[in-house]
Amino acid sequence: MQATTMAIEPTLAILSGKGGTGKTLLSVNLASVAKEATYIDCDVEEPNGNLFFNPTQEFGKLVTVKKPVVDEALCDGCHKCVDFCAFNALALIGKRLMIFDEICHSCGGCIHVCPQKALSEQDRAVGEMSIGRSDSVRSISGSMNIGESSGVPIIEELLKHKGEDLTIIDAPPGSSCLVTESVRLADFCILIAEPTTFGAHNLAMVHELVSLLGKPYAVVLNKVMEGKNPAEEFCIKNNIPIIGRIPFDKKLGSLNSVGKIASREEKHYRELFASILSKALAKVNP
């Protein structure tokens, strides 16, 4: 590796088509085997990264969005804002306007539409974020409050705190707008897949997404065992580089199930993940 301490180190995003394929396992271990790294948990609906890192918190804040508030003295109950709102976040009973904060997408439309100028905006917390340290890893994590409509504002906030060191982004599962936002700053994507027909299908979905976004990528196969591996067949057929194989391993599974970082526990796991990291970095550097 040629990188000097002055250069901005790359950002790697870890993706999978579905939850439970080993995305967090790979992310926390890649961050742990690097000399210094920042880990960003963008799976803000089910953030699990800090269950592994258990970091000492250094910084924390609420993440807010704009919400409309009504001045009841000015509202004359004309119904225009209710009719305008594409998300159905407003209701009017007589002259009483009700605003459903969790349904609101903060588009600001109702403020513009109101003929009486009865609506204005305030900040509203939709979740929180924190930065902590666990050995060589700076962990940035956020969580969305239950019942909120979108995790995008929280992911935006998390990415603002990305540094110049090696960054590992643990993306949310699937191929929704949350994933698109999470991988925005990524130099390289690692897709992780299980060795089943399901795994291959989910890999195809996330492969379509990274291709659409024009990001370079490679695959890590998880739970590899003897026999057929449809995810591997998919990679071969589509000329997708495979930069690692995590074997199916009961020990690894049980360490992971109780929140232990395998590469910090045993040398051969450390070597496994270090090899994946160096292969990924070799692909990033032109």
Binding site: F84, A86, G108, H112, V113, C177
Partner: peptide, 13 residues
């Protein structure tokens, strides 16, 4: 189109 959430504000303004 991927980023547009369909709020209709731009069409209104």
């Amino acid at each position: 189109p991927i980023a547009c959430e369909g709020c209709t504000l731009c069409a209104f303004l």
